[in-house]
Simulated assay, not measured.
Amino acid sequence: MSEIYRSEAGAQLLREHYLRALTHWPVDHEQHRVPTPEGETFVLSCGPADADPLVLLHGSGANSTQWMSRVAELAARFRVYAIDIIGEPGLSAPARPPLDSDRYAGWLDAVLDALGLGRVPIMAVSLGGWVALDYATRRPDRVERLALSCPAGVSRQRKGFLVKALLLNLLGRWGRLRGVRLVLGPGLASLAPAETAMVLDQVLLVARNYRYRSGDLPVFDDAALRRLTMPVHVLAGELDVMLDSRETKRRLEAVAPRATVRLLPGVGHFVPPRPAVEHAFLTS
Score class of each variant (00 low, 15 high):
Leu74Tyr: 04
Glu8Trp: 13
Gln202Thr: 14
Tyr210Asn: 10
Lys249Arg: 15
His29Cys: 15
Arg15Lys: 15
Pro48Cys: 06
Leu91Cys: 10
Ala49Pro: 02
Leu184Glu: 11
Leu282Cys: 04
Gly39Ala: 11
Val234Cys: 01
Gly90Leu: 09
Thr260Asn: 00
Ala136Gly: 14
Leu228Arg: 09
Leu167Trp: 14
Trp130Ile: 04
Leu146Met: 06
Leu146His: 05
Met68Ser: 13
Gly59Pro: 03
Arg6Trp: 02
Asp52Gln: 14
Ala124Gly: 05
Ser284Ala: 14
Glu88Phe: 02
Leu171Gln: 14
Thr248Met: 09
Pro48Trp: 02
Cys150Arg: 05
Ala11Met: 13
Asn63Phe: 05
Arg103Cys: 03
Arg6Thr: 13
Gly179Arg: 05
Phe161Tyr: 15
Val232Ala: 02
Ser69Ile: 01
Ala259Arg: 03
Lys159Gly: 14
Leu19Lys: 12
Leu91Ala: 13
Gly118Arg: 11
Pro94Thr: 07
Met230Val: 05
Leu182Phe: 04
Cys46Leu: 08
Asp28Trp: 09
Leu170Met: 13
Pro272His: 01
Leu235Thr: 00
Val143Pro: 09
Asp216Arg: 15
Leu13Arg: 15
His24Cys: 11
Met1Thr: 12
Leu167Thr: 13
Leu44Met: 13
Leu74Ser: 00
Pro186Gln: 03
Pro35Ser: 14
Met198Thr: 14
Gly10Leu: 12
Val154Arg: 08
Pro97Gly: 03
Trp25Met: 13
Glu247Asn: 01
Arg6Pro: 01
Leu14Asn: 12
Pro98Cys: 04
Ala207Phe: 13
Ala132Leu: 07
Pro94Lys: 05
Thr283Gly: 01
Arg77Val: 15
Glu278Cys: 00
Ile85Lys: 02
Gly10Gln: 11
Tyr104Ile: 07
Arg176Ser: 08
Ala95Asn: 06
Ala189Arg: 15
Leu205Pro: 08
Leu91Ile: 07
Val271Glu: 00
Arg6Asp: 03
His269Gln: 10
Glu40Ile: 13
Leu13Asn: 04
Gly185Arg: 02
Asn63Leu: 04
Gly215Val: 10
Leu264Ile: 11
Leu264Asn: 00
Val180Leu: 03
Val27Trp: 10
Tyr210Ile: 08
Ser60Ile: 10
Val154Asn: 09
Phe270Gln: 01
Pro89Trp: 08
Ser45Ala: 14
Tyr212Trp: 13
Pro193Asp: 02
Val154Cys: 08
Leu99Trp: 12
Ala207His: 13
Leu263Asp: 00
Leu112Met: 12
Asp216Ile: 01
Leu191Gly: 02
His279Cys: 01
Ala93Ser: 15
Leu117Arg: 07
Val199Leu: 13
Gly266Cys: 02
Val267Ile: 15
Val120Phe: 08
Gly59Asn: 06
Arg246Asn: 02
Ser126His: 04
Asp141Gln: 15
Ala189Trp: 10
Trp107Lys: 07
Ala51Gln: 06
Pro26Tyr: 08
Asp216Tyr: 10
Arg178Phe: 00
Glu144Trp: 12
Leu54Ser: 04
Gly175Pro: 03
Gly153Pro: 07
Ser7Phe: 09
Trp67Glu: 02
Leu162Phe: 08
Ser245Thr: 05
Leu112Ile: 07
Leu191Ser: 07
Tyr210Ala: 09
Ser45His: 08
Tyr5Ala: 06
Leu167His: 06
